[in-house]
Amino acid sequence: MRFLVVDDSPTMRRIVINALKTFGYLDVVEAGDGREGFEKLLSGEEVDFVITDWNMPNMSGLELTRAIRSHDSFKHLPIIMVTTRGLKQDIIEALKARVNNYIVKPFTPAVLKEKLDLVLGQNS
């Protein structure tokens, strides 16, 4: 299982990767914004799961989600949004863009694990 972790904060990328490591997921690719993340996908990087922030320069997590969902090769990729945004309208926007799950920062490893298992269960 290979993860793409997208966040403009290096601290957050490291935290997410660290949490994934404790769950036994060691294979991770990272990107500093949506554009870099999408370019990695386009360049043929093998990815099975995307964990993305929302607020990022150049290309937001929402735009990344839309780009993934409208691309034939990646549209089925599971996506979890991890963000500080917690307004109802934000969640609705994310759902409309078809994220598989939504986590608000600061999160606990237990929440990330729960959502991962849920999404992986839905996708298996």
């Binding site: 904060s9 601290t11 935290i15 660290n18 500080t84 920062k105 600061p106 490893p109």
Partner: peptide
């Protein structure tokens, strides 16, 4: 691990 998770506050304060 809890310390690492608490450091998420850095992202929030920088925002």
């Amino acid at each position: 691990n809890t310390i690492i998770m608490s450091l998420q506050v850095q992202d929030i304060t920088s925002q």
